[in-house]
């Protein structure tokens, strides 16, 4: 009897009371979180300083002017009023939209076709993958240069070919519609390898058993693609669309090298407009406001993509 009591006492001394236990646990968790924050700190310092703060600052700047050469000055809604009636900005938004739709549709169509071919015909596919990848290594400046060569009036391949076939030569970069189309083609040429490899990787993630099951059930090639592959690829497609929208709405480098926004602003894109207002015209206020417009457009388009492409997946789950 006595011994059990003393044993219980000893046990009590050894174990922690509930409060003590809770305190020790809290201390442990605190130290554990602290350590996690230490792992995060090196990333979050530049993340806050160079991404989060500038992003919020850009919204504040849209109510300011100056800033590049002299300190920024608050001007209220003046920038917004001035860009609301700016036909050059609406033109730039329109050019960017036309460019982005054409470029994304073209590059996705070609990339999906090529990815399907590479997925089906694997013998020797490595050499094609490498060849398609090469344009990705070139900075846009070189891409622009190559396309200037291709479209040059006197010695460009396209004009020499037109000439040889008995057509008139075209001043390609000198006419608005063709100049924008050249930018589309240059960017599609550069991006095709990336998207082909992206869709190829996605296709190879589709479990072979599901396709076999569909084959046994009598589904033909097109049906298998539509009913099995595409639904399974929906999240990949969503990611691709979002990334492509974000990237293509920021087209700038090829514009800078190929056309400088011309002729007559017909290839002026949003980032070209922003850059010119900020660093060429010293119309910084308009540049700040246009940057916020670009942010809003990208956020809206991303949200729409999620709704359209993400919805069906949710319903099924």
């Amino acid at each position: 009897m006595m011994s059990t009591v003393s044993a219980e006492k000893a046990w009590d001394e050894l174990t922690l009371s509930e409060a003590e236990y809770r305190r020790a646990g809290a201390r442990y968790r605190q130290r554990r979180s602290l350590r996690a924050y230490l792992f995060l700190l090196p990333y979050f310092i530049p993340f806050i300083a160079f991404l989060l703060v500038p992003a919020l600052w850009s919204i504040w700047l849209s109510f300011n002017r100056g800033g590049i050469l002299d300190p920024a000055k608050y001007v209220g809604l003046e920038n917004w009023r001035s860009i609301a009636s700016d036909t050059e900005l609406t033109g730039a938004i329109q050019n960017t939209a036309v460019y982005a739709v054409e470029a994304i549709l073209l590059v996705f169509t070609l990339a999906i076709v090529l990815a399907l071919l590479l997925n089906r015909y694997r013998k020797g596919s490595n050499i094609f993958k490498l060849a398609l990848y090469v344009p990705l290594l070139a900075p846009a400046v070189l891409v622009g240069l190559i396309w200037q060569f291709l479209t040059n009036f006197d010695f460009g391949f396209i004009n020499l070919a037109l000439d040889a076939m008995g057509f008139d030569r075209l001043n390609i970069l000198g006419s608005g519609r063709l100049a924008l189309l050249t930018i589309v083609l240059a960017e599609v040429w550069r991006g095709l390898g990336f998207w082909t490899l992206y869709f190829l990787a996605s296709l190879q993630n589709v479990p072979e058993e599901l396709l076999d099951a569909a084959r046994v059930d009598g589904a033909r090639g097109v049906q298998r693609f539509r009913r099995v592959t595409i639904p399974l690829l929906r999240p990949m497609l969503l990611f691709a669309v979002v990334i492509a929208i974000i990237a293509n709405f920021q087209v700038f480098d090829t514009v800078y090298v190929l056309t400088q926004g011309g002729p007559y602003e017909s290839t002026s894109t949003m980032v070209w407009f922003i850059w010119k207002r900020l660093f060429q015209f010293q119309e910084t206020g308009q540049g700040y406001a246009a940057a916020v417009v670009l942010l809003a457009i990208i956020l809206a388009l991303t949200a729409i993509s999620f709704r359209v492409l993400g919805a069906r997946r949710k319903r099924r789950a």
Binding site: A55, S58, L61, Q250, W275, A291, L294, L295
Partner: peptide
């Protein structure tokens, strides 16, 4: 989520504040 969300911020939005900074 915050880190992923910033994927959507275009570089063109950041250049002015970064330049000033």
């Amino acid at each position: 989520g915050l880190v992923l969300g910033t994927l959507m911020i275009p570089t063109a939005v950041l250049i002015a504040p970064l330049y000033i900074m």
